[in-house]
C-alpha cells in the first residue's frame, strides 16, 4: 500500500510539473498571438497568412473530431466548407443578414447537412464511408454550381464587407481578432468536450465500437453527433472565408480541399487538438514558403521558372509521403519528443 501511495503522489507530481510547463507554453503562445498583428501591422502578407492559418485550424479541429477522434473517415470537408461559406454568403448578400448572424446560421446549416451525410456511417466503415462522404462532396458542389439563381453558380458570389459598430472588419488586421478569438473558443470547447462522456464516447467508437455499444453508447446517436459537431466547426471555417474574402467561389471547395485537410490532420496528428494546430499551420505555411523560395531562386536560376510549379507540387507531396513513412503519428509526436527532451534536459543522456 505504501508503495501505491508513493507511486500515485509521484505521478501527481509529474502531472503537476507537466501542467506547469504547459501553462508557461500556453502563456507564451498567447502573448505571441496578441503581439503578432502589432509587430506585422504593416506587413499585410503575414497577417493574411495568419488569418488563413487560423481558419485552417478551425477547419482542421472540426475534421479531426470526426476522423481522428471518432474514427469516421470523411472526404466531404470541401463540400461542408462550401455549405458554410455559401450559407453565410447568401444570407448576408441576398437577405442582408449581419455577418455574425449569417455565420451562426451557417454553422447550424452545415451541422445539419453533416448529419444528413453522416447517416450512412451507421452501416459503412473505412473506405466505404470515404466513398459515401466523397459523394457528399460531389453532390454539394454540383448543387452549388447548378443552382445559379441562389448561389451564383459558377460565377463568384460577392458578399458585402462585414462591419462592427461601423468599423470594417475584414481588413487583415481587424479580421485577425475575429479569427483568433474564434480559434480560442473552438479550442477550449473541444478540449472540454473530450473531458466529458461525449468525447469519451467518440473515442470509444473509434477504438472499439462493439464494446462501446455494450457499454451503453448509442452508436447511431453519437456518430451523428460527431458529424454534427465536426460539420458545425467546418461550416464556421467556411463562413469565415466568405466574410474575410468578401467573395465565394466554388473552386475553393473542391475535393482538393478535402484531401488537403485530411493531410493536415494526418501530418499534425490524428485525434489531437495540438496536432490540428500544428498540421494546419504547417500545411498553410509550407506552400507559401515554397512559393517564396521559388521566387528567390528565380533570380539566381532563371531557367527554373517554367519548372517551378512542378517543383513546388512535388516537394509538397514528398513532404507528406516522408511524414507518413517516418512519423506516422505526425508533428504532434515530434512536438512531444521535443518536450520530453527538454523536460529531462539536464539528465537526458
Amino acid at each position: 500500500m505504501i508503495s501505491g501511495i508513493f507511486h500515485s503522489s509521484y505521478e501527481k507530481d509529474m502531472a503537476l510539473r507537466r501542467t506547469h510547463a504547459q501553462k508557461i507554453r500556453l502563456v507564451i503562445l498567447f502573448l505571441f498571438l496578441l503581439a503578432f498583428p502589432f509587430i506585422f501591422r504593416e506587413n499585410r502578407y503575414y497577417l493574411t497568412l495568419a488569418n488563413q492559418v487560423g481558419i485552417a485550424i478551425i477547419g482542421a479541429i472540426g475534421l479531426n473530431i470526426l476522423v481522428g477522434y471518432t474514427g469516421q473517415i470523411s472526404l466531404g470537408q470541401g463540400g461542408f466548407m462550401a455549405v458554410g461559406a455559401y450559407t453565410a454568403g447568401i444570407l448576408t448578400a441576398r437577405l442582408g443578414m449581419p455577418w455574425w448572424a449569417s455565420t451562426i446560421a451557417a454553422c447550424f446549416a452545415t451541422a445539419l447537412v453533416g448529419v444528413l451525410f453522416g447517416i450512412p456511417s451507421l452501416r459503412l466503415k473505412g473506405l466505404y464511408l470515404a466513398i459515401a462522404t466523397l459523394s457528399a462532396q460531389v453532390i454539394i458542389l454540383w448543387i452549388v454550381t447548378n443552382w445559379g439563381a441562389v448561389t451564383g453558380g459558377v460565377e463568384a458570389l460577392v458578399v458585402p464587407n462585414p462591419t462592427l459598430f461601423g468599423v470594417r472588419l475584414n481588413s487583415d488586421f481587424n479580421f485577425y481578432w475575429v479569427t483568433w478569438l474564434l480559434v480560442l473558443l473552438v479550442t477550449i470547447a473541444t478540449v472540454n468536450l473530450f473531458r466529458t462522456h461525449y468525447g469519451r464516447a467518440f473515442i470509444a467508437i473509434r477504438d472499439q465500437d462493439i464494446a462501446a455499444s455494450v457499454m451503453g453508447v448509442d452508436l447511431f446517436k453519437y456518430k451523428l453527433l460527431a458529424f454534427a459537431i465536426s460539420s458545425f466547426l467546418v461550416g464556421l471555417a467556411g463562413a469565415l472565408t466568405a466574410h474575410y474574402r468578401s467573395i465565394v467561389t466554388w473552386e475553393r471547395f473542391t475535393v482538393d480541399v478535402s484531401v488537403l485537410y485530411l493531410a493536415m490532420i494526418i501530418i499534425g496528428g490524428l485525434g489531437s487538438v495540438t496536432g490540428s494546430f500544428l498540421g494546419a499551420t504547417f500545411m498553410t505555411l509550407l506552400p507559401a514558403l515554397l512559393t517564396n523560395l521559388g521566387r528567390a531562386a528565380r533570380g539566381t536560376f532563371p531557367a527554373i521558372d517554367s519548372l517551378l510549379p512542378f517543383i513546388q507540387q512535388g516537394t509538397f507531396g514528398l513532404v507528406i509521403i516522408l511524414f507518413l513513412i517516418f512519423e506516422p503519428e505526425g508533428l504532434n509526436k515530434i512536438w512531444r519528443n521535443i518536450k520530453d527532451y527538454f523536460r529531462l534536459w539536464p539528465f537526458s543522456y
Binding site: 462522456h197 469519451r200 464516447a201 473515442i203 470509444a204 473509434r206 477504438d207 472499439q208 457499454m215
Partner: peptide, 16 residues
Amino acid sequence: LFRHMSVLDNLLAGAH
C-alpha cells in the same frame, strides 16, 4: 478495451 485511452478513461467510459 479502448486501446488508446488510459485506464482511468476506460473506467470512466464504463460509467457512460
